[in-house]
């Protein structure tokens, strides 16, 4: 009975306060208010020798998404921050993230030498619910690898 009450109490507490106490969890996914106008993602694409561009996809699809979200944060910091240290930190983090992209691409048995550059592409939905893609930056592979 004591065990039963303890478990139920912890479940109620994490539900009310909205904090994880692993493995006791609250489940906040997709709870935040979101507007169609604000839907914007940063996706990574790879450019090959022939200039053909294809999305970087991974079996663990959260990798490209997580890195894309971080890159969006980095670009926002660089665009709007007045703090030089913050901007420098964002740039360093971007470099670190891109090196991780190269590492993961390399592990996917993709012939990395066939690719020349990484494209960072901003994707959003316009008022006519159509997709708008805009290339934010093209970074040569050798620049990422050799720093």
């Amino acid at each position: 009975m004591v065990f039963f009450v303890i478990i139920v109490l912890v479940l109620i507490i994490v539900t009310i306060i909205g904090k994880d106490f692993y493995p006791f969890s609250h489940y906040p996914m997709f709870s935040n208010k979101h507007a169609v106008n604000n839907v914007i993602v940063y996706r990574i694409a790879l450019e090959d020798d022939n200039g053909k561009i294809e999305w970087w996809q991974h079996e663990a699809y959260r990798y490209p998404e997580f890195i894309g979200r971080k890159l969006l944060g980095n670009y926002t910091t660089c665009a709007y921050s007045n703090n030089a240290i913050e901007i420098l930190a964002a740039k360093m983090q971007k470099r670190k993230l891109l090196r991780q992209v190269v590492r993961l691409v390399d592990m996917q048995n993709i012939k990395i030498k066939n690719y020349t550059a990484v494209h960072i592409i901003e994707r959003r939905i316009n008022t006519a619910t159509q997709i708008e893609d805009k290339t934010i930056e093209v970074i040569p592979f050798n620049k990422i690898i050799n720093g």
Partner: peptide, 25 residues
């Protein structure tokens, strides 16, 4: 917990469809 979080973070406005629409997009 998932329902409570939606109410806490977005209120009943979560049900207006726009949030789900944005997440789907």
């Amino acid at each position: 917990s998932s329902g409570v979080q939606k109410l806490k973070q977005s209120g009943l406005g979560w049900c207006n469809g726009e949030t789900l629409q944005a997440h789907l997009f």
